[in-house]
Design a protein around this nucleic acid. Structure first.
Lengths: 339, 339
DNA sequence: TTGAAAGCGCTACCAT
DNA sequence: ATGGTAGCGCTTTCAA
């Protein structure tokens, strides 16, 4: 059932080399021959074998994305599904495809990289911020494998990366709550070591400096449950916060749930701002204020950089910063609601 | 930087063929030679080139999944992100990888299939229920390309498929509302033609037969907004339903929002049951009752069938049905709440 | 048990 | 402008 260039060549009574030329759009082929070959290709429903092509051309037209999350946890994280969604949308316009793999972190992760890159299965990798990524990145660099990091390169200037300014994002979120009249603003982050979270906490601290004495910082594990548990505790504190910045929309929903349990009204008794501006933000009454990370922009830069890296080997801009934008909704609108 | 079997062969002073044999675990190689070769492979950090290997062996170890959704809409659909998540988790234990592509439906979709299968980029495809899939499936069958359908094969017995019994799922959901004392139960489906939705509506009709005179069936586009708009209208009806089965968790959130706007209390004034049992169900007060489709089970069967199809060419069971289970939460617990 | 050699289907170079 | 041909790195005969 498979049709090769050789088959086409025989039918068209030309050499297989000519068929190849027609396929690659070589202008040197005689228009008559070209049309004849194209006609036969169409009739026979010919498609070039991607395996032979990539063996020969050294390009697989596959980009890899390794999701570093415990089993089953991807579905819960709107950031990742948003990311994947945007990547495949972006690649739709190109000849590239996405190869998606999971890793459990640790050295399992390095094994996935090896499997994808050293076997030349993919042309390049998109990495997403993770904690202990030093070894793998060192290895990729040393082997000169094309990759782009979505996240903070932590000062390494040789890495191609796209990132939001998460310090600024944390600052924007915090300042917004303060400007809405909240007096005791706290932040719930992920466990420390997670760069995005650490950066946003730094932004929070920057924002409250001089405006609020207590630094109210809590750490919770990822996920709604963990955030809800944390919020349950802190909302029962003698002088509980009246405004909380939550590291993630999904976790913010946990805070919402905890507040509801305790009869604490949002935004009257508690102002809430989170990050990612995912579809979840439309799910609560009045909406959840959230800082948009502009995932489409992030993805556009990451993919175009990676593709250029794969195809031309060099890109000028190493570190790109994508702007973030506060999307104000009901959860932080104390002034309006009190009016 | 690339190391080939030839390089290894030279270092080990054996033929390249022997290196290949060592790699494939051929028991006929002398243990001494085997160890020597393995040692050198380790030292040189050798990994077989997957492109050469797949050209030769006719196996790419890639499975394809084509997401048929308009741009950007993947992130909003917890069913798809759950599906993807489970697939990559499942494949983690195998040698296979996932190639994820997007298509806008229509003939763009057929083009993606062609690109993936006719170019032999992937060994097989996982299809997810879509509306006008007849042509593509006919084509896959005719070309004997391995594929598994997640969804209803619509009576075609030659197709390998895994599916829930969506008629039953619709029935379970509806019966539950009736058993909770709701008297006017309606259903919001997707636009007709979507098999999952049509089946669940059929189940709804089966369940109310003899118990309720009016068949209250509405159709909405996918997404929270569309469902919310539909719900806004129908909840203002003179004799509005007091129980609604919603085709999808995400759309159910739209109904929740509409009810909140109109001051209609859940579950006292309105009982709600939806499908998929996604993370969204934890987001409303008391929780959203939902029929779990057991995505992990679905994926397990789909992947193992596809892999067997790819590797052995035949599988006995054509059509597998994965059970679904009602997860009862607050949104449908009228009795308890009224007590 | 091992090696030599024939391709897999393609690209790209060298002739003509 | 076209054809012949040499590989890409691997698996798998076929001989030895």
């Amino acid at each position: 059932m498979k049709v090769t260039q050789n088959d086409i060549a025989k039918f068209a009574k030309v050499s297989q080399a000519t068929v190849s030329r027609v396929l690659s759009g070589d202008p040197k082929v005689d228009p008559d021959i070209r049309d004849r070959v194209l006609k036969i290709m169409g009739d026979k429903n010919y498609r070039a074998d991607s395996r032979a092509r990539s063996l020969r051309s050294k390009k697989s037209l596959l980009l890899g994305l390794v999701i570093n999350r415990p089993s089953g946890a991807l579905g819960d994280d709107p950031f990742f599904s948003g990311l994947i969604s945007e990547i495949i949308d972006y690649l739709r316009g190109s000849h590239y495809h996405l190869c998606l793999d999971a890793a459990n972190g640790g050295n399992g992760e390095a094994a996935v990289y090896d499997e994808l890159l050293r076997t030349r299965r993919v042309d390049g990798l998109i990495l997403v911020e993770s904690e202990a990524r030093d070894q793998r990145i060192a290895r990729l660099q040393q082997d000169k494998f094309p990759f782009v990091l979505i996240g903070n390169p932590l000062g390494c200037n040789e890495i191609h990366s796209v990132d939001n300014d998460n310090v600024q994002a944390g600052e924007i979120a915090t300042e917004h709550l303060i400007s809405q009249g909240y007096k005791r603003v706290g932040i719930i982050g992920a466990r420390s070591g997670v760069t995005v979270s650490d950066d946003r906490i730094a932004g929070y601290q920057k924002a409250i400096r001089g405006k609020q004495n207590d630094h109210l910082i809590w750490h919770a594990d990822f996920g709604l449950q963990a955030a809800q548990a944390t919020a349950r505790v802190l909302l029962r504190l003698p002088n509980r916060p009246d405004g909380i910045v939550v590291i993630d929309d999904y976790m913010a929903m946990g805070v919402v749930a905890a507040a509801r349990e305790l009869g604490i009204r949002i935004p009257q008794d508690l102002g809430l701002v989170s990050f990612n501006d995912s579809a979840l933000c439309g799910l609560i009454d009045g909406g959840l204020t959230s800082v948009s990370m502009n995932i489409p922009g992030l993805v556009r830069i990451a993919c175009s950089t990676l593709i250029r890296l794969v195809e031309h080997d060099e890109v000028l801009v190493k570190r790109a910063i994508e702007g973030c934008a506060l999307k104000i909704r009901g959860s932080s609108m104390r002034e309006v609601n009190l009016a």
